[in-house]
Design a protein around this nucleic acid. Structure first.
Ligand SMILES: [Mn+2]
Ligand SMILES: [Mn+2]
Ligand SMILES: [Zn+2]
Ligand SMILES: [Zn+2]
Lengths: 133, 133
DNA sequence: ACTTTAATGCAACATTGTTGCAAGTTAAAT
DNA sequence: ATTTAACTTGCAACAATGTTGCATTAAAGT
């Protein structure tokens, strides 16, 4: 029943994953594309990102302003990529970072079944907070 | 200095606000447009929604899947519309509702200045949870 | 009524993401 | 090493969503 379709390692996929692994911040599709130097088509990057998300290797973040970014967590206490943490969106430099230690607590609403949570904080990141200009 | 530009009450603005006031769930631009019966142009609705958000009369919700919706809170203990609450996104009926009583608690990360929070839960709403099919 | 300027309609454009299909490539089986 | 299945890619075409410029209309204060 569980027809697990195998995923293949291609040059493009390796490049995209490497870019995300090196980055300290979450990247958008366009930002990733720029870093690949036209190694592959725009559509291919969309499909690679979809695959990586499906395989739980990276995760997708939708920001307050609607921009979509992708990130690979840097902590790896577990062998799987867990992303039930908060994200921080800087209003000034627009960078999005995983706050891998910040996990919100809340009272589960009655009659609702919660499968997934998304918690995004926005404001000023440490960089922009120090250089106040 | 504070050149507060005045906002005007037009037929279109009144209609859009009425639609949002009547709705129990958050609505997308397209859903709002359908309910207006071509009272005004598509672009006008975008601009009206921007104004209403700017004036803090309604608020904008970006869902996990990237869809953008707008809502007017129904509670009104205060006279201003406060929206620091959680939102619930049903995976089945795709409806988004304000959980006006659910507010997450969290440990403020060091060196970050938090101005705004966004907390979205997704799963099954009471309706879809009961009618399990 | 007059005046100011916010609001609208329309067309044109930009961005982001999706889909179908032929051709290319990976990795396993032989 | 060759063969082969099916996963992956490029390309073109499309769709959805949102933005901008500008001439015209209309709201609200005088
Ligand atoms: Mn993360
Ligand atoms: Mn709300
Ligand atoms: Zn910053
Ligand atoms: Zn539901």
């Amino acid at each position: 029943m569980d027809k697990t379709k195998t995923t293949r390692n291609t040059a493009a996929k390796t490049a995209v994953l490497e870019i995300l692994t090196q980055s300290k911040i979450a990247l958008s599709h366009t930002e990733i594309q720029k870093q690949t130097n036209d190694l592959c088509d725009r559509v291919t990057i969309y499909r690679i990102l979809d695959r990586l998300v499906n395989d739980d290797i990276i995760h997708k973040i939708v920001n307050l302003d609607g921009t979509v970014k992708y990130a690979k967590c840097h902590h790896h206490a577990q062998r799987v990529h867990i992303h039930n943490h908060a994200h921080f969106s800087c209003e000034k430099c627009l960078e999005i970072t995983c706050l891998e230690n910040v996990k919100p607590s809340y009272i589960i609403p009655h009659n609702y079944k919660v499968n997934e949570i998304n918690f995004t904080l926005s404001g000023l990141c440490p960089n922009c907070l120090n250089s106040n200009n």
